[in-house]
Write a protein that binds this DNA or RNA. Structure first.
Lengths: 193, 193
DNA sequence: TGTACATCAGTGAACGCGCGTTCACTGATGTAC
DNA sequence: TGTACATCAGTGAACGCGCGTTCACTGATGTAC
């Protein structure tokens, strides 16, 4: 039966939030709409009242998840010195907690290679999220001229994403840990003048 | 009808080679066995004469593709000075050619986030390939003590994989290029004492 | 070296299953008077 | 403010489709004598 406008809006948000977790946990292709809607407490039939297609949901889920990630990181470093802020960003992003909980972590690390094959709208959302992440880093590189800080922050953000992705693939625990530790050290070196 | 042993071995190799390209092009989940076998010039029914399951093919395809990648890179830098070799590695791996041709490129970049959700055997194959890639880099960091060269090479290899993956996601061509260029510059900095 | 038979690579139909999407239906919400 | 009716969120069955896997069958290859 029909629901109130606020209920409808809440349901839609719940679907997007549930979807973004399911995608990150199982991958985009392997997260089916039926299971996903059930996880949101609904049946699959109602899906198309909210979204035109699965692709649209993917786009929105990536957008929201990346917004939430960068907002969270931004809040975490608010008011800190650039040096301390960069260290905090790296500790948070390159943590074992992040590695072990893909469902609530960075979409770029959880879905990177699938995003590379996604449609333009989803890749746009991913690109914007990536640039926001890089921007957070660029702000901590104030010792450098702006152009160089921009270029370097792109490389640093990609290195962070690559490190988490690979730390999840690697079957040898000490090596996985060494990769995360090494990446942090190596980025801190790269942040120096 | 039955085939000779050498024909059978050749067919098996052809399936693995075709599969590794199809996986890198379409993703593991989205590369179906029927299409894949057709691409290898066979019908899908014969698949299980060669492999116990799709998972086994995935493992072998990743193993072979990573072996081929590291062999190719190794041949390319043979006899070069460490400095020149590192630069060559980076130019080759971080090229627009590599970015634009995932089907024949690095499996870790093409399938990274899917590999993180794959079974142990496939993740073992990916881990070994990653360590071989890192090893190639470590050999060019002879100015550093071995422990540090190992840690740093892990971080560098992950940064390379992350950069290619993200360069494929990014919808803005200049930014994609800036990421590849920036990553090379930043790794060369990190390689210095 | 030649013959008889077992092996098995490859074919194509078939299996059950879950996929994304559509649709008739329900009944509460929203709207127009 | 109350009433009549249109809207539409959510349900559950159904659609065609491709998936991974199995199987009976074919006939050339490999093996045993």
């Amino acid at each position: 039966m029909r629901r109130s406008k606020t209920d409808t809006a809440r349901t839609r948000e719940r679907i997007v939030e549930t979807a973004s977790q399911q995608f990150r946990r199982h991958g985009i292709s392997d997260a089916g709409l039926s299971r996903l809607m059930a996880a949101a407490g609904l049946t699959h039939g109602g899906f198309y009242r909210h979204f035109a297609s699965k692709d649209q949901l993917v786009t929105e889920a990536c957008h929201e998840a990346l917004l939430s990630l960068t907002d969270g990181l931004e809040a975490r470093i608010a008011g800190k010195s650039p040096k301390r802020a960069l260290s905090l960003l790296l500790e948070t992003y390159l943590s074992r907690t992040h590695r072990d909980q893909p469902a609530t972590g960075c979409v770029l690390a959880a879905l990177g290679s699938e995003l590379a094959r996604s449609d333009a709208a989803t890749r746009d959302a991913a690109t914007n999220g990536f640039l926001r992440l890089a921007g957070l880093i660029a702000h901590q590189l104030k010792i450098l001229p702006p152009d160089e800080a921009q270029d370097r922050s792109l490389a640093i953000a990609a290195a962070m994403v690559g490190a988490i992705t690979l730390s999840r693939i690697i079957t040898d625990a000490p090596i996985s840990k060494a990769l995360l530790r090494g990446t942090k050290k190596y980025i801190l070196r790269a942040a120096r003048k």
